[in-house]
């Protein structure tokens, strides 16, 4: 396999991975622009935007974080922010596990560090390349670096655009959060098996938000909905078997 190949193969594979990810990098850029605008509205400072996008580098988790963020440090919900990032990112367990064949038996800990650059986009492209008999760590990294640059640069552009607007509510921009989350949700629709988990999540969240202050409705709804979805899926398979 390519793991034994000479160094020039790395740059070749790296560039191939980056090229394969150009179309998806454009969609990363669109999301990045919106995130940047919303981050400004949520009260993040420029350095906080750079730190979060540079270090966390996970779109869905960063969008959820904006909903929880407060501009006053004393009321910043540190625990819920970290917990939400953990829960939203748990699905990466499944994604990165499928990349195992790209890595050698030994020295997996070094490979673990490279997981930092895995996003939905370069993961999908790499898995597709693996299915065709290609794919490599360098290919994965090439796509990851392109996605990182695309995400960071458009976040900053969006942040700059956001700061050009003094009173967001006057332009209806206070609705930008809800609109963005709604569109993100619709983009996740994969079929009718999503209906039950989404409805359960929505209902549980609405009820929780009525009775409990803060952001608990996100956690309660997210857990209830995802568990309901898993239950329905497992039941269905049992019936077919």
């Amino acid at each position: 396999m390519s793991t034994l190949a000479a160094p020039y193969r790395f740059s070749e594979q790296f560039c191939a991975g980056a090229r394969a990810c150009v179309p998806v990098a454009i969609s990363v850029a669109a999301y990045g622009l919106v995130w940047g605008v919303l981050a400004r509205g949520a009260g993040l400072s420029l350095i906080e935007v750079v730190m979060m996008s540079g270090l966390v580098f996970a779109g869905s988790a960063q969008f959820v974080a904006l909903d929880l963020w407060t501009a006053t440090p004393s009321s910043l919900p540190i625990g819920p922010l970290i917990l939400a990032a953990l829960i939203v990112n748990l699905r990466y367990l499944l994604l990165t596990a499928t990349l195992r064949p790209l890595y050698p038996e030994k020295g997996l800990w070094r490979g673990a560090l490279s997981m930092y650059l895995v996003t939905d986009e370069n993961w999908a492209m790499t898995v597709a390349a693996m299915a065709r008999g290609g794919g490599s760590v360098a290919f994965l990294m090439g796509g990851g670096v392109l996605a990182w640059i695309s995400w960071m640069s458009t976040n900053l552009i969006g942040y700059g655009l956001g700061s050009a607007i003094d009173d967001p509510a006057r332009w209806g921009l206070d609705f930008a959060f809800t609109a963005t989350f709604l569109a993100l949700l619709l983009g996740m629709w994969k079929g009718r098996s999503d209906l039950v988990p989404w409805l359960v999540a929505a209902l549980a969240a609405i009820v929780t938000a009525q009775f409990v202050e803060g952001s608990w409705h996100i956690l309660v709804g997210g857990l209830a909905g995802s568990l309901a979805g898993a239950l329905v899926e497992v039941r269905k398979h049992a019936h077919h078997a």
Partner: peptide, 20 residues
């Protein structure tokens, strides 16, 4: 595995529904 797959959609639904 099914549970992990359903988490992101459910979290977003939980986030949007009360606002709507």
């Amino acid at each position: 595995a099914a549970w992990l797959r359903h988490i992101p959609g459910a979290v977003l639904a939980a986030l949007v529904a009360p606002a709507l």
